[in-house]
Design a protein around this nucleic acid. Structure first.
Lengths: 339, 339
DNA sequence: ATCCTCGATGCAATCGGTTGTATTCAACGC
DNA sequence: GCGTTGAATACAACCGATTGCATCGAGGAT
């Protein structure tokens, strides 16, 4: 307990204004400002600005049981998918007066748990999670902690919790249909990790679309949603299924790894191999080759998730919402006609 | 004051373990755990886990005057430069037990001030700011608030505050030298906003390098560090200085805008125009054309800034540090010999 | 003039921890 | 046998706000 030169407290403001602590508190809070005489309130406000008073959020929060902060946990902030989502969420949250506590867990389950605990200790008013596994016990832990939460991008297979996810199935269908129209009949899939809803759903819809259209396919699961994992999975795919002429990747980073592996195997994209990604991450259109991909409105998704969470906070009794964000296909240079 | 079903408090743990509140507190804190008998401590810990107890950070922080959180303010999280920096910082901070409060201000001064106030109210233990203007009064405000702070990426011209920035001058020199070696004699610069240290320093070093090497140059200032601003500035540059054969851009996003504007003006990069960027943002090597640029180790920069801040927190009396992070030039496809 | 009403303000409890100090009690020395 | 000591624990103040309730006093009704 170091007696640091402490910043001015409400008491100091009250004394400077010649009023009682509680009057000062009321004068400074919009909800209660009407209780105090206008000119008194003005005097208090003046004193507050003169002293450079800032309310102590911890003291306030302790009493009000609200921290006015939201915790957000993403697997990897350097995955270009997330920054727009963070920004969309942050916009919505700051408009509502909330701050954002952000954690990037590097796909590490232990770190995720630790960070989640830290957020619960910070008494965040709500949580936005992009790290759910399909069978994650996380939902139970959240229920136990009593903190409102929204899953985004990924969700769980079952569990009463709100979620905001892209239309994975439709994205896969669009990708397969596009390749079929280009004449491809042998299509590979580099699936994202199947313990994620994205990986799983994109895979299932892919399989259905392929069989409905009478095409052939082969699937390899990547161990992560990044370039490295995509590269290695693609190496395996090339070996096991050399006759394929097109590949669908479960996200854009995997697609980049796929293109690299193809290149290293002497396959040129799109001449020898068409590739379709997923997410339409920033800069995807400027890559070499420009990536044909499924557009997910990341920023809107982040905003929707934040707004959903704010609703859940405002009405804790409400039913969970399961929001699916529409996707489209954008055709660029990484896919081309079969030759 | 709604009597919500509150999560277990220390008092509940103490009662469950049959000890006094203060004993429970000591048993649960590593620093004081030695004060209580081992088996008592064990009993308390057991009770805590059984009840799912999580300390209330606001109550703790109120007493200890530490929130164990750090505020970070960036101009735009969707600028690819920042995510790696955020990640580097977050790693260092979470290792030290701190959480990260993140705000993206969209280059809006008012929003920045509001977010900064929110962070001060949250009583963050330190601040990492990437939004400083060269003559920013922010340093005084920080001093007034008494919160330790570090500026990163950008800094101020004068003021006693720690900073971690790339070697802007060296980057400019490397870029100009490279273009000169390729035979270019007429070089344009699309400078970043000159109210930022980056924009200013890169400009000044550019001018010096150009004159030292006996080259010609022309400068236009972009209004922001993004593609749009780069595009418009480049349009102006083309008009005012059509004889240039190479352009240095103050960052990679500006470089993309420059390439777009050049393309729209019928100039092909690098055939008709060489372009050098700054930052080596993620994916820069995979763009069309792959970007020749000055590599800034973003993640390391973020980590260094965080570590610098942690030092400042540990020793509030210490002198400000001014750390300059070395940069290198990476030559790719956007620059080529004069023809 | 007295009482009532009601708006404005003061009082004090409370939120959930930490920590300086007092207390307790057993072991020990003389 | 008694005072001393020290380890372990209990007590209580405090961090800085919010808020239900008490109080005060001015103005209006009777």
């Amino acid at each position: 307990m170091i007696p640091r030169p402490t910043s001015p407290r409400l008491r100091d403001v009250a004394e400077a204004a010649g009023v009682h602590l509680s009057t000062a508190s009321r004068a400074l809070n919009d909800q209660t400002a009407a209780m105090v005489q206008p000119k008194t309130a003005e005097r208090v406000r003046l004193a507050a600005t003169e002293l450079g008073y800032r309310v102590n959020g911890m003291a306030r929060g302790l009493k009000t049981r609200r921290s006015m902060s939201i915790g957000m946990v993403v697997p990897d902030i350097t995955n270009p998918f997330f920054p727009p989502a963070v920004r969309g969420a942050e916009e919505a949250l700051s408009e509502a007066g909330f701050s954002l506590l952000l954690s990037s867990t590097d796909n590490n389950v232990d770190k995720a748990r630790a960070q989640l605990d830290a957020m619960i200790e910070a008494r965040v008013d709500g949580l936005m999670l992009a790290i759910a596994h399909r069978h994650d016990a996380i939902v139970d832990r959240l229920h136990a902690s009593g903190t409102p939460a929204v899953l985004f991008n990924r969700t769980v297979d079952r569990g009463a919790i709100s979620s905001v996810v892209p239309d994975d199935a439709r994205g896969s269908r669009l990708a397969v249909a596009h390749l079929q129209e280009l004449g491809h009949r042998q299509i590979g899939l580099v699936a994202g990790p199947l313990f994620t809803s994205n990986g799983d759903r994109r895979l299932r819809a892919f399989r259905r679309a392929v069989s409905r259209l009478g095409l052939q396919c082969h699937v390899v699961e990547a161990t992560a949603f990044d370039e490295d994992a995509g590269y290695h999975a693609m190496q395996q795919l090339i070996e096991e299924y050399p006759e394929m002429t097109a590949v669908v990747a479960s996200n854009d980073l995997i697609a980049l790894g796929v293109i690299d592996a193809a290149t290293d195997a002497g396959l040129e994209c799109p001449r020898d191999l068409s590739v379709v990604g997923f997410n339409d991450m920033p800069l995807a259109s400027r890559l070499q080759p420009p990536l044909t991909t499924v557009t997910v409105p990341e920023r809107a998704l982040g905003r929707l998730a934040a707004e959903c969470l704010l609703r859940a906070i405002a009405d804790p009794g409400a039913e969970p919402e399961r929001i699916v964000v529409p996707v489209t296909l954008v055709v660029r240079g990484s896919s081309g006609p079969l030759r």
